[in-house]
Each structure stands twice: as C-alpha cells, then as structure tokens.
C-alpha cells in the first residue's frame, strides 16, 4: 500500500515555482573524495531547495571547519555562504538569522565540529531554538586531518593509525533530545530519498531542526564493521516510517488506511506524511524517542526517520519580540533616537 502524492515539482517540468532550474541551485565542483557521503547530502540539499521552490538568495549556508564544513561551497552558489570557525557555526547562525529573520539558514556540520569542539554551542543553539536546519554529516572520523577518532566514533572501533577507540560515542540525536530540540531526525547518506524528504521538512520547521545523517568517509572509516560505513548502514538501516514531504501548495491525495500513517503539519502549512512500517511510532512522544534511541543502540541497528517533533516551542525571534522588518533593513530614523530623547536621558544624570 503506497502513499500517492501528486507533486507539481516532480515530472517533466523543468522549472520550479520560482521559475528556476536545477542548475540555479548548483554549487562549485566538489573537492571532497569521490564517493564521500557529504556529496550525496549536498545533492539532496540542492534537490530539496529546488523542489521546495526556495529562492537561493534567501538562503544562507553556514558551517564550521572540517570536510563537512567545506561542502556548502559545493551547493547553491547563489546563496551567501559562511565557512566560519571550528565548532562555532551556531553562534554565527544566531547573529546572522536574528538580525534578518527572512533568511533561511542551512548549517552543515560534522561530528567533530558538533560533538567535540562545538558541543557547547550546539546545545545552546537548541536551547534558544533558532530557526535553522542543522545537518550533522556524521562519519565518526576526522577526515581533513587524516583519520583521527571523533566523539561519535564507535567504542572499540579500530582506525589504521590510532588503534582502538576506548570511549563511548556521543549520540547527536540523544543530545538534541535532551537539549529540548523540537525537530530531531536521523538518516543515512545511502538513503537519499529519505534525506531529501527530511531536509524539506526541516526547511519548513520554525525552530532548530537537527538532522544527524550518517555519511560514510570512504577514505578513513568505511570498513564494513564500522557503524558509519555504507555496508553497515545498508545492512542495518531500519526506517521507523516512510517519509514523504508535501509542500503547502500541492494537492494531496492520500491513499492509506486509518492507523497506517501520521500527518504532521509544519509551520508553513506543508505536511510531512509518515507512513507506518514495522511498528507504531509516535514522533511527538519525547519519551518514546529516547527509548527508541536506547533500544536501537542496544540492538545495533540504525533507526532512521523523524525521531521527534514538537512544534510548540517559540523560535528565538519570537522570544526576542523583534519587529517584523529584518533589523538589517531598518533605517537611520528607526535606529537613532531623537536629539530630544538624549536631552531627557541626560537630565537623569544631573
């Protein structure tokens, strides 16, 4: 039984609703290794933005440092990009988005950038609920410095140069859940369809959306026994549901029995359709989400899909009670109070 969706973007049409072609979403040629999971994710980011008809000029691509953080150069050249400092992408994003609330921020980070040097900023970003898509391209290894363990590396994993890893890995999704993140998803670069649908949903979410995507490093960490390898992912991936994103402007024709799926309406009116697979899973239940991560870790399987969603937390710009106009577009008359007001203030210092 399949979910049937009539999607205006799919099919022969060569432009999206913005009148742009897929080419308009292209980046510079990649300099990452051939077969790197990050390239596949970059392709899905482009596809998601194209299919969602997001104007590339409205997007900012932000990253920290590392292989993953280089990748924003390889998609959407018509978007402003900022390859910032190691582990500090969240702070750059916070400033950039708060002062221009119309920007759509796509952050690309890695497991070192997020779970090691950047764990502090990551947690505080989630705590503030800044609207942005936060992708972790998780390969369990430092690629750019040629193969050291990262904080998500498997315990007892063996790397060529370093030997065996004695430490328990950081689970990015678990950290996000604990930090009260309202959109927590996990996927696998070897499952591009799911990656794309989840990115589309994340782009429609008004808050921080975390996507932990297992993205194999073909050079340093792709041995079959590694939980970050293509072979292991393909073998052990268990989608918790079938994910389909339906934009707000599409007609939806759903074809499944009651109880076989859940529809999640997102902030911009689009819908995420989650079709039940093996067992019932309610992504709005935080406790169930934590249980799922615990269980799948114990069973050594890769559960993918939308692990948790909570749309009720106010995003940062609402907490800050900002004017509707982006702060960057305010003019001098909005920003510089009058001479009379200064005289009044001065009177209180006499």
């Amino acid at each position: 039984m399949a979910i049937r969706v009539e999607n205006k973007q799919s099919g022969p049409s060569r432009t999206n609703l913005m009148g742009l072609t897929r080419n308009d979403y292209k980046g510079r040629p990649t300099t990452l290794c051939q077969g790197c999971g990050h390239n596949s994710i970059a392709s899905q980011i482009m596809a998601a933005c194209y299919e969602n008809s997001i104007p590339p000029e409205k997007v900012i691509k932000i990253s920290g440092i590392g292989c993953s953080s280089k990748s924003p150069a390889y998609f959407m050249s018509r978007s402003h990009g900022f390859n910032s400092l190691h582990g500090r992408m969240p702070s750059i994003a916070t400033g950039a988005v708060l002062v221009n609330r119309e920007l759509i921020a796509i952050g690309v980070s890695g497991d070192g950038d997020t779970a090691s040097i950047g764990i502090g900023q990551f947690i505080h970003l989630l705590r503030r609920n800044l609207p942005m898509v936060y992708i972790v391209e998780n390969n369990g290894v430092y690629g750019l410095t040629k193969g050291q363990f990262s904080a998500t590396a498997d315990k007892v994993q063996v790397l060529k140069k370093i030997g065996e890893n004695p430490f328990f890995p950081v689970d990015v999704c678990m950290e996000a859940l604990i930090a009260n993140c309202g959109f927590v998803a996990r996927s696998f670069a070897g499952d591009p369809k799911q990656v794309k649908e989840l990115i589309k949903a994340a782009l429609s979410f008004n808050g921080t959306a975390v996507l932990d995507i297992i993205s194999p490093c073909v050079t340093f960490n792709n041995r079959d026994e590694s939980t970050k390898s293509y072979a292991w992912g393909k073998e052990h991936e268990i989608p918790i549901h079938d994910v389909t994103f339906v934009p707000r402007y599409d007609e939806i024709a759903v074809d499944y029995e009651p109880g076989e799926g859940t529809e999640v309406e997102l902030h911009d009116g689009s819908t995420l359709m989650l079709k039940k697979l093996e067992q019932d899973y309610d992504p709005t239940d935080r406790k169930a989400a934590i249980m799922l991560l615990e269980e799948t870790r114990a069973r050594q399987v890769l559960a993918t899909g939308l692990i948790y969603i909570n749309k009720d937390q106010p995003p940062l710009q609402e907490v800050e009670e900002l004017v509707d106009t982006p702060l960057t577009r305010l003019r001098e008359e909005d920003l510089r109070p009058s001479p009379e007001s200064l005289l009044e203030v001065l009177e209180s210092f006499r």
Binding site: S84, S91, I92, T94, G95, Q121, E321, L322, V323, L335
Partner: peptide, 28 residues
Amino acid sequence: CKATYSIIQAEDELAAIGMALGAGWSGA
C-alpha cells in the same frame, strides 16, 4: 512593544563574539 534590536546573553565569550560577527556579516 516590538524591539529594533536584539541583545543575547551568550553561553561564553566565544559565542558572544561569534554571534556579533554573524550579525555584522548579515548587515547589523
């Protein structure tokens, strides 16, 4: 009631200047 500014107490000085830089880059 609506603010033409945003003041954030950051988690540390690294984040404080990072946010300021992000905002400056954006045009603030």
